[in-house]
């Protein structure tokens, strides 16, 4: 831990937080533009049309995609670094609660974005999510119907939650976690460049299955790998565990060491499965 403190720059956590927020904001604004051209009853056609007919359509989609990926990565690192700095000792309970909740919400957004592309891999991801949620005893079907219901109504519900959760996340962060004054005082051109440049040079392609295999979004590869060997209900609960472990740091703030080890084991296992799936 001491070595980490020496290696990591002093303002690293704040930089991550700022970068993550900036990425999320850009993602939401680029998403707003995309939403004018997206029709959930024809998802794939909307995406293809957007790229073919809308001026800068391809760029907006790439910006939306890459800023979302950056937001996920930087938020995850921000969460981990907040633990390293033991910020649960100083942050308000509400602020910490929303920080812990922001990752699952953002992951749902990124995952639903993957489904909304409407290509073959997106369809498969949607089917997995729907069936995985449905496999939960008693509450599975209603939850699946609420958030997915793809086999019944296509991507309509996923699209609506994609919109609702984006604004919920942004509003929640602004109300309970971030100070806007601080954000504006921290504006760095370098971060903006880092978010815009990948969209200029790379393109998130619409792909069919490769080698008869479908992996899903990169952060879901571990879950896909787990599903090959473990019961789907176990995998579902495993995926839900992270925010609970994270919130537990506030409850056991006086003796957090066992929680650190639990979190390391939890993430380590997921990493192993992810590597197996690559």
């Amino acid at each position: 831990m001491k070595l980490l403190t020496k290696l990591i720059p002093r303002n690293f956590n704040l930089d991550l937080a700022y970068f993550s927020f900036l990425a999320l904001t850009i993602c939401i604004f680029s998403g707003l533009i995309l939403s004018f051209h997206y029709f959930p009853e024809k998802p794939l056609l909307s995406v293809v049309n957007l790229e073919a007919t809308v001026p800068f359509g391809k760029f907006y989609r790439a910006l939306h995609y890459f800023s979302a990926q950056m937001a996920v990565i930087s938020l995850f690192l921000h969460l981990l670094d907040a633990l390293r700095l033991k910020l649960f000792l100083v942050k308000s309970n509400r602020g910490w609660f929303f920080l812990g909740l922001s990752l699952p919400i953002l992951l749902y957004l990124a995952f639903s974005g993957y489904i909304l592309r409407g290509d073959e891999t997106g369809e498969l991801a949607g089917s997995i999510a729907e069936n995985l949620t449905s496999s939960i005893p008693l509450l599975g079907k209603p939850i699946s119907n609420l958030f997915f219901a793809i086999s019944q109504v296509g991507v309509h519900r996923v699209y609506l939650w994609h919109l609702y959760f984006s604004f919920l996340l942004l509003t929640g962060l602004l109300l309970w976690h971030i100070s806007l004054n601080r954000v504006f005082s921290y504006l760095k051109f370098f971060y903006l460049a880092l978010l815009f440049l990948p969209a200029l040079f790379f393109y998130p392609s619409l792909k069919p299955w490769g080698n008869l295999q479908a992996r899903g979004p990169w952060f879901f590869v571990g879950a896909q790998s787990m599903l090959k060997f473990l019961d789907e209900r176990f995998v579902f609960f495993y995926l839900l565990l992270f925010p609970f472990i994270y919130q537990a740091f506030v409850i056991w703030k006086k003796n957090p060491t066992p929680l650190f080890w639990i979190l390391i084991a939890y993430l380590g296992l997921y990493l192993i499965f992810s590597l197996m799936g690559i």
Partner: peptide, 17 residues
């Protein structure tokens, strides 16, 4: 989990991707 199945003619098997 409801994935759309495919056919591998070389191995004569139906596969889940």
């Amino acid at each position: 989990l409801g994935c759309k199945l495919n056919f591998d003619p070389q191995r004569n098997l139906i596969l889940c991707p």
